[in-house]
């Protein structure tokens, strides 16, 4: 069954809110930029967990109750920065310590009594699931309809052939948050083929889709966009077009092109 998951057509990128294009810095606060993007038709925001963005979302929640928030998890750039000092498990434990024991109990982190020990045992899918809980806590008030695995994490796990991590992520998104699981990737074809081979039920893939074929490499004699076609025709996946233009802010014609292509149900824009 080709079920479409309803998401806004025009989705704003969170990174572009905190780091807008240098030629487009009008509206000096994140809130002002977000408000402006909504006026220009953005129906949702796809974002990593970021304090400034959380604050802006809280401020506009009543005014725009229909606005869709799509979390990207985990916050890999922040995690990598911490891991430079403390190692990966250490960085996970620090996150846990920050919410505190009672905080973790309140969050319902499964096996909270065991969480630090589990982190120390270095089971990566478990580290990932603890990060998921910690970060989703910040997003739960926005009732996200879908949650996305961050692209570096997803592509690393893809290269390492880690079916279990994707399966655990999908299960956690559905069972704990009633959210549709999705992945961000810059390796659309390989990702879709693997998810299918592994029989992991993740329909939403947010991947580069643009006229310049940027990050859409040829596969043998098949051009990037041609290689997307059979996967999308299979009806097993729903493409959210990312990096739709090499220019920032995203030009209107790039958005039209992506949405009129028939390949993507939504597109990510930057401001």
């Amino acid at each position: 069954m080709n079920r479409m998951i309803p998401l806004p057509k025009k989705i704003l990128s969170g990174t572009s809110l905190t780091h807008p294009a240098p030629n487009n810095t009008a509206g000096d606060s994140v809130s002002a930029r977000l408000e402006r993007a909504i006026e220009r038709g953005a129906g949702g925001l796809m974002t990593l967990n970021n304090a400034e963005i959380q604050q802006a979302l809280r401020e506009m929640k009543e005014k725009h109750p229909e606005f869709t928030v799509l979390p990207v998890i985990p916050n890999v750039p922040e995690f990598v920065r911490e891991a430079t000092e403390y190692g990966m498990a250490g960085a996970g434990i620090r996150r846990l310590l920050r919410v505190g024991f009672m905080g973790a109990v309140r969050l319902g982190i499964f096996g909270v009594f065991k969480a630090p020990a589990v982190l120390l045992q270095r089971d990566f899918p478990t580290i990932l699931s603890v990060l998921f809980e910690l970060e989703m806590n910040e997003f739960r008030k926005f009732n996200p309809p879908a949650v996305f695995l961050q692209n570096q994490m997803a592509d690393l796990l893809l290269a390492l052939n880690n079916r279990r991590a994707f399966a655990m992520f999908a299960e956690q998104a559905r069972d704990r948050y009633g959210a549709e699981p999705g992945v961000l990737t810059v390796n659309f074809v390989r990702m879709a083929e693997k998810l299918k081979e592994w029989d992991v039920k993740i329909r939403l893939i947010c991947a580069p889709f643009n006229r310049d074929q940027f990050l859409m490499p040829d596969i043998g004699d098949v051009t990037g966009d041609e290689s997307y076609a059979p996967i999308l025709e299979s009806g097993k996946f729903q493409l959210i077009a990312d990096r739709i233009s090499i220019h920032s802010p995203t030009p209107d014609d790039a958005l039209e092109w992506a949405l009129n292509s028939g390949a993507a149900s939504s597109a990510i824009v930057s401001c």
Binding site: Q152, V186, D212, L215, P217, I246
Partner: peptide, 27 residues
């Protein structure tokens, strides 16, 4: 991301990037 010339030529990395697998284009 960009290679520019003072004559106005601007070349984006998309014209050259062709790796079959990319782990993280921003890193």
């Amino acid at each position: 991301d960009w290679l520019r010339h003072s004559d106005g030529t601007a070349l984006h990395r998309s014209e050259f990037d062709r790796a079959a697998f990319n782990a993280s284009p921003d890193y």
